[in-house]
């Protein structure tokens, strides 16, 4: 187990270095001079810029060093939890991301709740009543849900619930009612794939011998399904939870932008539009760490869900 954890933490470091090095490289060769961006942000409009000023800033900020020196410097600062300062607002990147994180977490947890509430009952129902009308309808629902762009669903929900019915606010983040539409948008998209996994995993389990034994013992069908089958069917459902987390983060970027939800996703989109390089780099680093840690958590949960899984042998990481 320890060995396994060690391997995973090593992967975390490799991923962080790989992804941030890639973004660093892209930033370096991208149009848009960071020194000029700083100059505009600090000293106002382009007319007041002189090439002396820009080259002074470039030197001052260490932007004239070769790329690998800049990257090494950035990595070095990370160890002191210093991700630099925003080129636009001069705020520390670290503080900014952590002030935005609770909103993203809130959105992620709420949509997780929604997708589980949709996917598990429907998935079980369509597995138990295989090839029935319910199964057929849920299958079509899944296909439509997978094919639907989340930003379009968001706009349709706004149109219906906010504009026509006037029940919910269009955008913002002042309370629970503001959370409902973004979380539903994100939840429905992910519920589609999850429903499919729940169904196939449930079908798989229902064909096992221990289910036949449970039925032969004369247990009620509700107990057979709810206790014996569901518990075993959870393993594949948890397996894809890691993958779902990726879609959750991806979806959050789009959904936060539409609903003006002040999370990390919107911060990333805004800083890309403003070419705020340290902020982009910080967001990428943050998302990489969160994502790898979430997957690690998923893997560790197997040990508790399935007693057959033990990570003591040399495990491929």
């Amino acid at each position: 187990m320890w060995r396994y954890l060690f391997g995973r933490l090593l992967l975390l470091i490799i991923v962080v270095i790989g992804v941030t090095a890639l973004t660093f490289l892209m930033m370096y060769y991208t149009p848009g001079d960071p020194a000029a961006i700083i100059a505009i942000a600090r000293y106002g409009g382009p007319e007041s810029l002189s090439s002396d000023l820009i080259s002074w800033i470039r030197h001052q900020e260490g932007l004239d060093a070769p790329i690998y020196i800049q990257y090494a410097k950035w990595l070095h600062h990370i160890f002191y939890l210093d991700m630099g300062r925003s080129l636009i607002t001069d705020e520390p990147v670290f503080d900014k991301i952590f002030s935005r994180f609770p909103a993203t977490l809130q959105l992620a947890l709420a949509s997780m709740l929604i997708y589980l509430l949709i996917a598990i009952p429907i998935g079980i129902l369509s597995a138990v009543k295989q090839n029935s009308l319910i199964d057929y309808l849920s299958d079509i629902g899944v296909l439509v849900g997978v094919s639907m762009p989340s930003f379009w669903l968001a706009l349709i929900l706004i149109l219906f619930f906010s504009i026509y019915l006037g029940w919910l606010p269009v955008c913002g983040s002042q309370g629970l009612s503001y959370l409902i539409l973004p979380a539903t948008t994100l939840g429905i998209g992910i519920a589609a794939t999850t429903t499919r996994i729940v169904r196939s995993s449930m079908l798989d389990v229902l064909g096992q011998n221990y289910i036949r034994t449970a039925r032969a013992k004369g247990l009620k069908e509700a107990i057979v399904i709810g206790k014996h089958a569901l518990k075993n069917a959870m393993i594949p459902i948890v397996t894809i939870a890691g993958l779902q987390f990726a879609s959750l983060l991806e979806g959050a970027v789009v959904v936060e932008t539409i609903f003006a939800w002040p999370g990390v996703g919107r911060l990333l989109v805004d800083s890309i539009n403003q070419r705020d390089f340290p902020m982009i780099q910080g967001c990428v680093l943050f998302i990489a760490i969160i994502f790898v840690l979430a997957n690690l958590l998923v893997d560790c949960s197997y040990v508790y869900l399935d007693p057959r899984v033990r990570y003591n042998r040399r495990h491929q990481v």
Binding site: M26, T30, E250, V253, I280, I287, F291, N295
Partner: peptide, 24 residues
């Protein structure tokens, strides 16, 4: 495979967003 691991260990659309955003 390590390169694949690195790329798969990051949400794809977000990476594409960053790359496309930086390229313009």
């Amino acid at each position: 495979m390590r390169i694949v691991d690195i790329l798969l260990a990051f949400p794809g659309l977000i990476l594409a967003l960053v790359i496309a955003g930086l390229l313009g």
